[in-house]
C-alpha cells in the first residue's frame, strides 16, 4: 500500500475527472495520443497494481474502437487518413478515461471510500453506491483469479495451452464466478441489514479523514 492509497478518495476522483476533461477537450489526435500515453506512464510510475491486466484490456479496447470507427467513417465517405485520425483520437480519449478511473479504483479500498463519504456527511445511499461501484470490480477480479487457481489445483492446464482452450477454461470460471457474485451481493445486503445500515441516517467513521485517510488503527497511545 502506497501513500496514494491513503489519499482521500474524493481528491483522486476529482483529479481523475479534471484530467478526463482535459483529454476530451484536446483538439486532435496529436494531443490526445501523447496525453493518453502520459496517463499510462503515470500508472506505471505510481506502480498501480495489476497494470498488465489493464493494459491488455486497454489494447483490446483501442483495437475495437479504431476498427469500428474506421468502418463507420469510411462508409460515410471520409478519406482513410482522416478517418484514422478521428478513430485514433477517440481511442486515445477512451484509454485516458478508463486509465484514470482504473487508477482511482485500484488505489481506493471500499473502506477508505466509506470513510471519505461518511466524513463528508454524504447521504448513506451515495456512500453505498460509491463504495460498491469502485469496490466490486476488484473484488470480482480477485475472485476470478482465485477460481483460476482452483482450476489449476484440480489439474486443468490453463496456462500452457492454446488461446481457444484458454478462452474455454476462462468461460468455465463463469459458473463459480456468478455464484460468488450472488453470494457477495447477499453478504453485502445481509451485513447492511444486520449491522444497522439505514439510508435515512448519516454514518460516522472511525478513521481520521482529511487530505489523507487513516489506513489502519495504531496503538501508539493504548487506551488501556
Amino acid at each position: 500500500m502506497s501513500r496514494l492509497h491513503d489519499l482521500n478518495f474524493f481528491v483522486k476522483l476529482g483529479g481523475a475527472f479534471a484530467l478526463m476533461i482535459v483529454a476530451w477537450l484536446a483538439p486532435d489526435w496529436r494531443w490526445d495520443i501523447p496525453f493518453a500515453a502520459l496517463v499510462l506512464a503515470l500508472l506505471w510510475v505510481t506502480r498501480v497494481p495489476k497494470l498488465g491486466g489493464y493494459l491488455k484490456g486497454a489494447g483490446l479496447l483501442t483495437l475495437m474502437v479504431i476498427v469500428s470507427w474506421m468502418i463507420n467513417l469510411l462508409l460515410q465517405g471520409i478519406a482513410p487518413l482522416d478517418a484514422l485520425a478521428i478513430a485514433a483520437k477517440m481511442a486515445a480519449r477512451l484509454v485516458a478515461t478508463t486509465a484514470l478511473f482504473y487508477f482511482v479504483m485500484e488505489t481506493s479500498t471500499p473502506g477508505a471510500i466509506l470513510a471519505a463519504c461518511s466524513a463528508a456527511r454524504l447521504p448513506a445511499v451515495a456512500t453505498l453506491v460509491l463504495s460498491l461501484l469502485f469496490g466490486i470490480i476488484p473484488m470480482l477480479r480477485d475472485e476470478f483469479e482465485r477460481i483460476a487457481d482452483a482450476q489449476r489445483a484440480r489439474g486443468m492446464e490453463i496456462d500452457d495451452v492454446s488461446f481457444l482452450k484458454k478462452l474455454r477454461f476462462a468461460l468455465a470460471r463463469g459458473v463459480p464466478l456468478l455464484v460468488q457474485a450472488i453470494r457477495t451481493a447477499h453478504a453485502i445486503s445481509f451485513s447492511l441489514t444486520l449491522y444497522g445500515f439505514d439510508l435515512s441516517r448519516k454514518r460516522t467513521t472511525w478513521r481520521d479523514v482529511g487530505l489523507m485517510v487513516e489506513p489502519r488503527m495504531t496503538w501508539k497511545d493504548p487506551i488501556r
Binding site: T109, G135, W206
Partner: peptide, 14 residues
C-alpha cells in the same frame, strides 16, 4: 465483504 478488519468491527457503530 471487502473491508478492513477495523471497518468490519466499526461498521455497526458507524
Amino acid at each position: 465483504w471487502d473491508l478492513s478488519v477495523e471497518d468490519i468491527i466499526a461498521f455497526p457503530l458507524e
